[in-house]
Design a protein around this nucleic acid. Structure first.
Lengths: 137, 137
DNA sequence: TTAGATGCAAATGTTTTGCATCATC
DNA sequence: GATGATGCAAAACATTTGCATCTAA
C-alpha cells in the first residue's frame, strides 16, 4: 500500500534511489490511476524534455519488482501500470473503455477460493467488465 | 462453451469458414490449454510449412471476436489464448510458472460483486497466484 | 566515492497491413 | 462465382540492450 506523499522514503526503503525521473513517474501514475507507457512518456516529457523512454521501461520493471507498482493487463488494451494501493478490483467499462477501481476485499476472496478448491493460493487479480460510474450517469 | 469435436460446425455457426489452418489452430489451443502465438506458430508450422504467422494473428482476432477463444493476460507473460470452456479461473504457479485452470463459478462471483458494489457487471476474469497441482506433488 | 540511474542509439521483438492468390461455401 | 482466408513482405509499433555519462547516497 503506497502513499504518494512519502514516495521518496518508500523508494529508499525498497532500495531504489529517489531520482527526479522516478518520483515523477510515481506521481504521474498516482494522478492517472492507470496509465500506459506511451501516455506516461508524453506527459512527463513536457516536464523533463531529456527524458528517455528507456528510462520509463527500466523504471516500470524496477518499481514492479519492488512491488511499488503493478502491471495491469486487460484484453485488447496496452499494458498499464498502477500504484499498489488498497485492495481493489478493476472494472473495464464496456461503453467507454475506461478502467475504474472497485474497492473489494481480495483477501477474503482468496480464502474463499482456497476453501472451494483446496489449493495453495497467495494472491489474486480480478477484472470485471461492466458499466463504469460515469457512463451509468 | 466449445467442444473441440464439433469445432467445424461451431466455426460455421459463428460465420467463420472452417479452413485447415483455423481448425488446426483451434485443436492446438485445445491441446495446449493455454498457448502463446509463437508456440502455436512453431507447433503448427511442422504440420503446415507454408503457414504464415500473420494468419495466426488474424485468426486470434477473429476467433476472439466470435468468442470461440479468449485472450489470457498474465503479468510478465506473453499474451496467451484458450478455448472458451466451462467457467474457470486461472492459477499461475509461483514455482514453475505454468497456468492451471481451476473450475470456479464466476457467475456466482459476478452477482456477489454486484451486490457488494452496486454496479452493472456482466463478466469477470479472475487470476490467482499460488502453487499448481504438479508442484504440490 | 561509488553503485545505481539516466539518456542515447541501435538492436530485437511483436503485431499489423496491403495485396495477390487461393479455397470454402 | 463470390467472399472470406491465406501467405508474403514490408511497415509500424513496442521493448530491450550496451555503454558512456551523471547523480543520489
Amino acid at each position: 500500500m503506497t502513499n504518494i506523499d512519502n514516495i521518496d522514503d518508500k523508494l529508499r526503503e525498497k532500495g531504489l534511489r529517489a531520482t527526479a525521473q522516478r518520483l515523477m513517474i510515481c506521481r504521474e501514475i498516482d494522478k492517472a490511476g492507470h496509465i500506459e507507457i506511451e501516455s506516461l512518456y508524453e506527459s512527463l516529457k513536457k516536464q523533463i524534455p531529456s527524458l528517455s523512454i528507456a528510462t520509463i521501461y527500466k523504471n516500470m520493471h524496477s518499481l514492479a519488482e519492488k512491488e511499488i507498482i503493478t502491471e495491469v493487463n486487460v484484453s485488447g488494451k496496452k499494458t498499464m501500470y498502477e500504484l499498489n494501493i488498497d485492495p481493489h478490483i478493476h472494472l473495464v467499462c464496456s461503453e467507454c473503455g475506461n478502467i475504474e477501481d472497485i474497492p473489494f476485499d481480495t483477501i477474503k476472496l482468496v480464502s474463499n477460493i482456497k476453501e472451494l478448491s483446496d489449493r495453495k493460493i497467495s494472491e489474486c487479480k480480478l477484472t470485471t467488465v461492466g458499466i463504469c460510474s460515469k457512463c451509468l450517469g
